[in-house]
């Protein structure tokens, strides 16, 4: 059913039930995201897509649009909140971009640039997060995990449908785990899928890294904003 909503005061015609992030992108409005994957169930974990809908704060990726919805995206208050959430993710983990395999291909880094982040306003915590290297083709650089849950929800063993990745513990003690046995029988393309689905450099494919020269890396060729908006146009 065709409906009309407004985004930052601009009328937008769309279909009822579409995802607000997608609707915005179709209309050239970029809403930063870190956990959302188009076409997959909403995870709603990062909150970096926070907007106001009819005056209330909400995560855009969790909103199916309905008739008459009034959406605010581009206000100083909201922009600062989204930026603060990204900063919070940086101070919560340990991110040393210059030495990171994912640098230039990392959604957290790219989104940080996109929202104009320079340094985190929150004190860096320097948590101790041991890496996990037991599997043959994958290792976990836990310093960089942002607990988005993408790997947990979307990567499964193809024979048994079991989870391969899982979170252990909660709060400051939480950490991402991988089942070594299941990881070792992931076919190469699934290994790559896992490394790609991870928005940061936590799931890393062994033997691969720093492959693209600086200047030719994913988000240097096309920014995260351009990608978010561009994919829709083609």
């Amino acid at each position: 059913m065709s409906i009309q909503i407004t985004i930052d005061g601009q009328p937008v015609v769309t279909e009822a039930g579409e995802n607000l992030v997608d609707v915005a992108a179709q209309n050239s409005v970029y809403i930063p995201t870190l956990c959302y994957l188009k076409g997959k169930p909403c995870l709603g974990t990062c909150r970096v897509c926070s907007v106001r809908v009819n005056g209330h704060f909400t995560a855009a990726c969790s909103v199916p649009v309905t008739e008459g919805m009034q959406v605010e995206v581009d206000t100083a208050e909201l922009a600062d909140m989204r930026k603060a959430l990204i900063e919070s993710l940086f101070s919560e983990g340990n991110h040393n971009c210059p030495s990171c395999e994912k640098s230039g291909r990392c959604e957290l880094q790219a989104t940080g640039y996109e929202v104009g982040m320079v340094v985190s306003r929150f004190p860096y915590r320097f948590p101790l997060r041991p890496r996990e290297v037991a599997a043959d083709h994958i290792w976990l650089e836990r310093d960089r995990c942002i607990f988005c849950q993408r790997c947990v929800e979307f990567i499964r063993d193809r024979q048994t449908d079991q989870k391969i990745f899982a979170i252990k513990g909660r709060g400051t003690a939480a950490q991402i785990e991988v089942n070594t046995e299941l990881a070792n029988r992931m076919p190469p393309e699934q290994v790559r899928e896992a490394a790609d689905i991870c928005p940061v450099g936590c799931i890393i494919e062994k033997g691969v890294g720093f492959n693209d020269p600086i200047g030719r890396r994913k988000f240097e060729l096309q920014s995260v904003r351009e990608r978010a908006l561009g994919e829709e146009e083609s």
């Binding site: 709603g44 974990t45 990062c46 909150r47 970096v48 959430l85 919070s88 993710l89 101070s91 919560e92 929150f122 942002i146 607990f147 849950q149 979170i167 909660r170 709060g171 939480a174």
Partner: peptide
């Protein structure tokens, strides 16, 4: 529960 950034961090 730790699933979302603002509350967890």
């Amino acid at each position: 529960c730790g699933i979302c950034t603002p509350c967890r961090s």
